[in-house]
């Protein structure tokens, strides 16, 4: 049994310490938006945020996490798909099969949180998730759109930060 903070709630997870976070999320927490693609930190389908950093959850065990570590999954990114990155993804019809897209969106949101105006080279460097359907050019365009949309939003109080 482990205590994990997932999407803002502390929950008891009935998983052994060596269980990868990916499987604890999918099988114990019932959060199936985080996907399994490789299990060896290669594809990024399992990407989540841990304390604001994008991490590949297949390669982090439950035992390596503390109850204070803040885990955010695609389901916790926004209550209703209203995060600007999610909206940009929908506006540009980015997904094909969609299987990689939770991970792509988690990687993109983490990138934009640190770097609100990424260059193409920044995107190349940060976006290393596999998309077998080849949605890369729309992902790049959607990051650009989300960046622009976020720049035109009033900064949330207490969160304003200069890049």
């Amino acid at each position: 049994m482990a205590k994990l903070n997932i999407n803002g709630k502390t929950v008891d997870i009935a998983a052994s310490a060596e269980t990868p976070l990916l499987w604890a999320l999918r099988e114990q927490a019932g959060l199936t938006g985080t996907k399994y693609g490789c299990g060896i930190a290669q594809c990024g389908a399992c990407s989540v945020h841990i304390n604001g950093e994008v991490q590949r959850s297949c390669s982090i065990t439950v035992g390596a996490l503390k109850a204070t570590d803040k885990i955010v999954t695609i389901e916790g990114l926004s209550a209703d798909g209203s995060h600007p990155v999610q909206k940009a993804w929908a506006a540009l019809d980015v997904p094909q099969c969609g299987y990689c897209q939770s991970g792509q969106i988690m990687a993109a949101t983490a990138l934009l949180a640190k770097n609100p105006k990424p260059t193409d080279a920044d995107i190349d460097q940060a976006m290393t998730n596999i998309c077998r359907c080849g949605t890369y050019s729309r992902i790049r365009a959607a990051i650009g759109k989300a960046a622009a949309d976020m720049a035109s939003l009033p900064a949330a109080p207490g969160k304003a930060k200069k890049a």
Partner: peptide, 21 residues
């Protein structure tokens, strides 16, 4: 026209067979 199945794919809610419960 936009696809009919996009939004669920951006919020992690689309159920693939690997997600069946």
């Amino acid at each position: 026209v936009p696809r009919l199945d996009t939004v669920e794919k951006t919020v992690g809610k689309l159920v693939y067979s690997i997600d069946v419960k």
